[in-house]
Design a protein around this nucleic acid. Structure first.
Length: 623
RNA sequence: GGGCCCGUGGCCUAGAAUGGAUAAGGCGGCAGCCUCCUAAGCUGCAGAUCGUGGGUUCAAAUCCCACCGGGCCCGCCA
């Protein structure tokens, strides 16, 4: 496709257009590439765009063209180019199939490191679908960066020092809860349940509330029994959470604990630098007397909301302060570093490390070029403060990127099922503390059950193992697709019934197209041929073009960090393939047509699998 | 009160970062297509003043302004 665009540009330049503006027509019938430069030129030269377009078009010398067959000036002033399929199609199919899994890879990120932080769920509960949106988005971003040649470090921030941990500890130490969950309940789900129950108790019990505050303080002291118990609980919950994340297809390099940001004393160094920069000051009077605050008066939007406390009057750091220190560490501004120990192994065989004061491993990220924080939109303000603050440490703020996304809420129907009354609008916000959420594991199990029964309908002869394996992939595809297909800035109103859909604009639709293509290739008794038949069906052309656009879409998506673009393109590819499948029989076609169509099918599989890989949609040879 | 985000057929979503040619899918509804590579598919029909009003432009769903509706954020919490 790039070759085609280059050729069109070359033709236009030779015809006198300095900087041709090209676009790919949305609708068929306007050629394969279109130029809108006549509109630009019409602004300076006082002539109608149409006549300019006609002049340019007639000045184009097609004798030098290899991939372009025809040029035409059309209605308001477009210059449309039609492809010479005999040359274009074989070139393209050859390239795609030749590149194989490297199709859509790029080297733009070579030599650069980017740290992607995602998931970051408090280690006191199981993942709900809002967390899953974060994980699927973040994992896709990591995959996309990797495809562009970046070295990618995936981090998961473990906030193990908050008061939300105290609820669980309170249950174990004072309320008689067993540290072991009942048979059949996972530890993370068990803690999530305790979290809800304890919060209900605390609401009506002052003494318990006091007790909780005491435990919160005890967690901070590193040598206490409470501290050790807290670590144990957090690590056990984390182990379960990661199982869910792995199930979703995510992987991690490092698990960074908030308690270790304190232990390794990352803040002190940043504190000194901030003082020197003059960005922070100590309040000498007023309600915040004795606190260190960051001066936001020069910030374009935050200035009107007042300055932010970084160090409380008792000397303790706030959450934002620790986040600034952490960001400084990521960007290589500190001499101090974490130590790690081995936590476990990702499904892909790579090692996961966790911060540990007594750890024996080092993991030098060496100051990454770029850091991406996948954090929900409610944290825009604190994230912006962090970004603003690191600017005072001599860092280009663009290196710190908060990848914001809107929350997932529940449909009125789902909320009512969970016992929420008086649903006013069409949705209800989830709440871990309130027990209003949909658990990822349970949802996946539910999806898998449906996929099992659908698979059994189609393949009654399959072994149980094969059915299970297939159904698991379908369940994951359905969920991931659902959570990343739309814009990050839009709230998802989740509805279980809708999410169970496996037809239409869904993950399984993409898997199905892939499976169909795989079956054709499996049954073929001859190989692909690249010679283009004399005439091509519209469906063949449309599919070839979609395949051709793939690297351009991925490049765009990577540059703008828009995961949904890749998702939508995967759907477009699958849809174009299904049209082709319907109208263009492969195996029963004449020998030359058959060979060519086999090449199309093979190229389609390459294109679809590379896009699906970028968004973590597992594919199946059969389903 | 201030700031940020969203607003596209009954419902969900794409199309916005380069303004361009008949606004594209899905769900739901109706009507069809399996002696033919898996019907988790395909085709057709019905259904849209692209929140409203201005503005910029030869051209606006897309850019600018105002307003309306919805969400979020503004703690010595994390």
């Amino acid at each position: 496709m790039r070759k085609l665009l280059d050729e069109v540009r070359m033709l236009l330049r030779d015809a006198g257009v300095e900087e041709p503006r090209l676009e790919i027509p949305r609708q068929a019938g306007f050629g394969e590439v279109s130029c809108t430069s006549a509109f630009d030129i019409a602004k300076t030269v006082r002539k109608p765009p149409q006549s300019i377009a006609e002049e340019i078009a007639s000045g184009i010398d097609l004798s030098k063209a290899r991939l372009v067959e025809r040029v035409e000036a059309v209605r308001p002033g477009y210059i449309n180019f039609w492809v010479r399929w005999v040359n274009f199609a074989p070139d393209l199919l050859n390239t795609v199939i030749g590149e194989g899994e490297r199709f859509c890879w790029s080297a733009v990120g070579r030599g650069k490191t980017v740290l992607v932080e995602h998931t970051s769920v408090n280690p006191n509960k199981a993942l709900h679908i809002g967390h899953a949106r974060n994980t699927c988005l973040g994992d896709s971003i990591a995959r996309i960066y990797r495809s562009q040649g970046y070295r990618v470090v995936v981090a998961n921030y473990i906030d193990d020092s908050g008061s939300q941990m105290a609820d669980i500890l309170l249950a174990f130490t004072r309320l008689g809860y067993s540290p072991e969950p009942p048979a059949g309940e996972r530890f993370d789900e068990y803690c999530g349940r305790i979290y809800v129950e304890v919060n209900r108790l605390i609401e009506s019990d002052q003494a318990l509330s006091q007790e909780k505050r005491r435990i919160t303080l005890e967690i901070e002291g590193r040598d206490t029994e409470t501290f050790r118990l807290n670590r144990m609980v957090a690590e056990r919950v984390l182990a379960d959470q990661l199982k869910t994340c792995w199930r979703l297809g995510a992987r991690y390099d490092i698990l960074n604990r908030e308690s270790d940001i304190l232990a390794f004393n990352l803040w002190d160094e940043v504190f000194e630098k901030l003082k020197k920069s003059g960005a922070i000051y100590v309040a000498v009077d007023g309600p915040k007397k004795g606190c260190w605050l960051i001066n936001l008066s020069q910030h374009p939007t935050l200035a009107r909301e007042g300055d932010e406390v970084l160090v409380k009057s008792d000397g303790a750091t706030t959450y934002v302060a620790r986040d600034i220190a952490y960001a400084a560490w990521k960007l290589g501004l500190l001499t101090r570093d974490f130590r790690y120990r081995v936590w476990g192994t990702n499904p892909d065989g790579t090692t996961v490390l966790i911060t540990d004061y007594a750890g024996d491993r080092e993991y030098r990220i060496g100051g990454v070029d770029h850091t991406v924080n996948v954090v929900d939109a409610r944290q825009r303000r604190p994230q912006e403060i962090v970004r603003y603050a690191i600017g005072f440490l001599g860092v280009d703020r663009s290196r710190y990127h908060h990848h914001s996304y809107e929350v997932v809420s529940l449909s009125a129907r789902d909320a009512e099922k969970l016992g929420v009354r008086q649903v006013q609008q069409g949705f209800v916000h989830m709440s871990g503390r309130g027990g209003v959420f949909i658990n990822v594991e349970q949802l996946l199990t539910h999806l898998k059950e449906k996929a099992v029964s659908e698979t059994l309908k189609r393949h009654p002869d399959w072994s149980r193992g094969k059915v299970e394996e297939t159904a698991e992939a379908i369940a994951v595809a359905a969920l991931r697709y659902n959570l990343i297909r739309s814009d990050s800035d839009k709230m998802i109103v989740f509805d279980t019934e809708e999410a169970m859909d496996m037809e239409g604009d869904t993950g399984p639709y993409i898997q199905y197209a892939y499976a169909r293509a795989s079956r054709i290739l499996e049954k073929a008794d001859t190989g692909p041929r690249y010679e283009c038949p004399a005439s091509l069906a519209d469906e063949e052309k449309a599919l070839i073009l979609k395949i051709a656009h793939t690297p351009l879409v991925v490049e765009d998506a990577a540059r703008m960090l828009l995961v949904k673009k890749v998702v939508n393109h995967a759907h477009d590819l699958a849809s174009a393939f299904n049209d082709f499948y319907e109208k263009c029989p492969v195996l029963t076609a004449e020998a030359d047509v058959k060979g060519f169509r086999l090449a199309i099918v093979e190229a389609f599989r390459t294109a679809l699998s590379s896009t699906a890989n970028l968004i973590g949609i597992p594919l199946l040879e059969e389903m």
